[in-house]
């Protein structure tokens, strides 16, 4: 089954990208490298911080463009991957290894099956 692992990080954890650079990226590189070596990665991306986000809504045909993410939450979306594993337990095991599992959270969601032909 395919699952999206959606990584949420606290503001303090996100700040480590700048103030604890080598430890932060070392941990993520090792984690992503282990998933790559396991041959389970199907896609995904890391994201620049929420301050770089632009949110668009269309109301009554009008564009409403705002600075920032769509919702200002305590934990920030830091990135996501899509993995192919046998079951939820296997997906949770990989989620538990994420550096943000102990400093934020990891949402695990099955992906939609492809539309029937």
């Amino acid at each position: 089954m395919q699952y999206a692992l959606i990584y949420h990080e606290t503001a303090a954890e996100l700040a480590r990208r700048d103030n604890d650079t080598s430890a932060y990226w070392g941990a993520w590189d090792a984690y992503m490298g282990a998933m790559g070596a396991a041959g389970i990665m199907r896609g995904g991306a890391g994201l620049l911080p929420p301050t770089t986000a632009t949110t668009l809504r269309i109301a009554g045909g009008e564009w409403q463009v705002e600075d920032g993410p769509f919702a200002d939450t305590r934990e920030k979306l830091g990135g996501f991957v899509v993995i192919e594993v046998a079951d939820l337990d296997a997906a949770l095991a990989w989620a538990a290894r994420a550096p943000c599992a102990g400093a934020g959270s990891v949402e695990v969601r099955p992906t939609l099956p492809p539309p029937a032909a």
Binding site: G26, D29, A30, Y31, G33, R97, G102
Partner: peptide, 9 residues
Amino acid sequence: VRAAGLSQD
């Protein structure tokens, strides 16, 4: 590094 990537702690 591979071991670190597999650690939960």
